[in-house]
Design a protein around this nucleic acid. Structure first.
Lengths: 401, 401
DNA sequence: AGACTTAAGTCAATACATTTGACTTAATAA
DNA sequence: TTATTAAGTCAAATGTATTGACTTAAGTCT
């Protein structure tokens, strides 16, 4: 008995892991490049034609890919490209935000199939989560109505909620977020739906959406600056979403920034929340959201003034993440009013000189990503799909027997 | 011919990848836990006893592991633990720094077997690299003398050099570093030695050493703050060293910090270089290094003063990396005079409140790592070993045929 | 028009790594 | 002495990917 001490080790793998990885690789190759023939897939993945053939056959049998029209036009036998079948998989996503709860069902490509919005249930999370479960049930039913086969193909439930997680609830908690953050939400919703459930912060969820459908599709190193109620960073590192040791990675809004001699957390002066405060719109209602959209389009001077400061902070943030992460690109996305996000994007130019300014660069240093208020919910829903079908290191590993 | 466009895809894998991964997993399990029996390895990695037996046999045949004395003391057949054989692999490392070039040979466990120091060759890198190659040859010969079999087991050559890489050389370049940074050093040394050659910046190299032999051994999420001539961060993310899209990740010294109302890059006021400047010791010689060690031990007031500012900056840096990376721990290491590094470590306490201050924490938020001036060279040498024997995602992937 | 070339895709046999379940070995505990 | 527990082995089975020859179907060349 020398084994009281726990052994730290990574899992091994086996043929199952091999084929699981190869299936995922094929799916991603098609997702990123569009429809590809078996031969093209073999070239792309370095697998043999035969292996690709076998796997494509099994993916087709599983309803995940389907052949398209034969392509002629070159020498040799014409090729048959395969595309992803949208109805191959589905997932649900919930975004729990300060003001609202958004629920969405997406297909294999991450596209919306059904949605619902409701207020964040007041009171304790214990009862609130029952309300959320009720609405999830509605969306699930709507999905089942539209695509009956989807019930067999539900991959899981993704939750997105502002971080950070796992801290002691503080006294100052206007929107009850701290209570939700320390509530065992994953377990509760998993039990209530019977689905595998995952949790991300809003910035990470937005990055997930960005990778599934947006600007980061196929990019292996990107930092997504999330501009919303708070500010966060969604990290795509080495082709995988990175969340740190406690799912709190990217809480960039809490980094201390100095502006005009005073130091404050980034998001205290440059988040959407800070703008609402600047405008005297205390409550974070849908009305306030639309009001800001209006004011922005009207080029309100108070917004111009706020943008000057926030723009400077965001330029500094771009400089910081470029310096720290050395990404291929930085993406601005979020859930603030779209017109405002666009103005902020403009205010981030030109980016400060940094190591990202190297000769031979092909993609822009800063890009505008998803600024749809539903982006976070879509990203939440995309997470189970990504976990089930993306080529991840963890996917090859054996589970405990 | 619809294939002019390049296809982006990750490689697939096969049985070779499977067994390669499993071998690496076994090696790492032993490295992290110390000697383990076949049965214990099976439990740790979730592989079957039989698979572990087969792999251990092949690892033993390859001279990478060896059995230890039988362990009795429990019921059942006594177990035979296996340990790593230090002579199983070797690698060379070169640290090219502003003042010196250090060359070292290490064994499978990352321990030094031979070393050499020389000045950074003056003049153009083209001739300088010839001088370096000459010294590498000497160390290689010394290694071969001490361990004759090592010539068959040389894994590669690791280079460590201050970053950032790939930028246009600037005019201001007192130590010729910029010229070295834009010189094709990897290709030159690879051609000159016939060894597989890799390049890291000094902070990353130090993190590599930390993971192989130091505080980060077995930790999957850690940020190593490197305190040396400049300042950098070595990133251990998800169990792998992260270097970004252009090997420039972690160039944290260039992040703008505010102190007393003025903004400047972190390393302008808190690096060892800045202290030398503060002390009026312009040149970065070994003498200056020893002088600072002396002054620190004598508790010189100028050093105390500098430490006050630098300590504040480093506390802010800890806050920043905790907020951004959510690591299990932050490690201070580097190549500055050891006494100074220790004083700086003290000056970093207590760390600022941050999201890392969570209930249930087991390891300290900040730890002192390697502050040996040879740490960087050792890390450089450890890199080829790590690439050849650590469980990396990239290691399972097929190469182009 | 006919022969040639190129490329996609299939077939059947093979190779290779893990798995399975029964078995052997060797210790402590009762 | 016997039972129990655990380490480790054996040999057959299983499940992937691979190999090399083959088929199919187009375009190209003479």
């Amino acid at each position: 008995m020398n084994e009281l001490r726990t052994i730290r080790a990574r899992s091994g793998t086996n043929q199952e892991g091999t084929s699981a990885h190869n299936r995922r690789v094929l799916i991603e190759a098609i997702r990123v490049n569009g429809p590809l023939s078996r031969a093209a897939l073999a070239r792309a993945t370095h697998l043999t034609k035969q292996t690709v053939s076998n796997l494509i056959e099994s993916l087709e049998a599983d309803g995940l890919v389907a052949s398209e029209d034969v392509v002629r036009g070159g020498r040799g036998q014409p090729s048959t490209p395969y595309r992803l079948v949208p109805e191959g998989a589905f997932a649900l996503g919930v975004q729990i935000d300060r003001e609202l709860t958004r629920i969405v069902a997406v297909d294999f490509l991450g596209r919306e199939v059904a949605r619902a919005v409701t207020d964040l249930p007041p009171g304790e999370p214990e009862e609130g989560s029952k309300v959320i479960l009720h609405h999830i049930g509605n969306v699930r039913r709507e999905l089942a109505d539209r695509v009956p086969m989807s019930t067999q193909r539900l991959t899981g439930l993704g939750i997105a909620m502002p971080g950070p997680y796992g801290l002691k609830p503080s006294g100052d908690d206007p929107w009850m977020m701290a209570k939700w953050q320390s509530f065992p939400l994953v377990e509760t919703l998993a039990a209530g739906t019977g689905l595998e459930t995952t949790l991300q912060n809003d910035a990470t969820a937005c990055a997930t959406a960005e990778r599934m459908n947006g600007v980061a599709d196929g990019i292996d190193h990107a930092v997504c600056l999330y501009f919303g109620y708070g500010i966060g960073a969604g990290l795509i590192l080495g082709g995988e979403i990175y969340t740190g040791s406690n799912r709190n990675a990217g809480e960039i809004g809490m980094v201390l920034f100095s502006r005009g001699g005073t130091v404050a957390p980034f998001e205290h002066r440059s988040s959407f929340a800070s703008l609402l405060q600047h405008l005297g719109l205390g409550t974070a209602t849908t009305d306030a959201y639309e009001e800001v959209e209006r004011l922005t389009l009207a080029d309100d001077p108070r917004i111009r003034q706020w943008l000057e400061g926030a723009g400077a902070d965001f330029r500094q943030a771009v400089h910081m993440v470029e310096t720290i992460f050395d990404p291929e690109t930085v993406i601005l996305n979020g859930s603030a009013p779209p017109a405002l996000s666009r103005r902020l994007f403009e205010a981030m130019h030109p980016p400060l000189p940094s190591i990202a300014e190297r000769p031979g660069r092909t993609i822009p240093r800063v890009q505008l990503g998803m600024i749809d208020p539903w982006a976070v919910a879509l990203g939440a829903a995309a997470d189970p799909i990504r976990r089930a079908f993306d080529p991840l290191f963890s996917a090859i590993l054996k589970e405990a027997p």
